[in-house]
Design a binder for these strands. Sequence first.
DNA 1: CGTATGACGAGCC
DNA 2: AGGCTCGCCATAC
Length: 105
Amino acid sequence: MRESFFEEVYRIVSMIPRGQVATYGQIAAYLGNPRGARTVGWALGSLPEGLDVPWHRVINSQGRISGQPRGQRASEQRAMLEEEGIAFDDSGRIDMTKYGWTMAQ
DNA sequence: CGTATGACGAGCC
DNA sequence: AGGCTCGCCATAC
């Protein structure tokens, strides 16, 4: 029984600890698809509600929130990250060297 | 089975 | 530094 790519993404994202963030590419690479960042984003976009997956801890390689900056989802994501203690600079970017998830286990 | 889609990424100007 | 283009990949139809 192999999980769909979606389920694998959900599983990995669920491992991101509070107060840290990971990039789409990072997750894709972990799943064996260094080039499948888009697919990861798509998987999160189709994320059903009620799965207890910290989707807000996933951002793009620039350390910014993806999607429409004005969108409701983006503001909500930023609010949740700030609540976890993550800081945004004037450009709305996160310091990956400081909050980036290292997948250390 | 071919085409379209999407919360991306790296490169180039 | 900021913005644009092209490449990538798993589903949906």
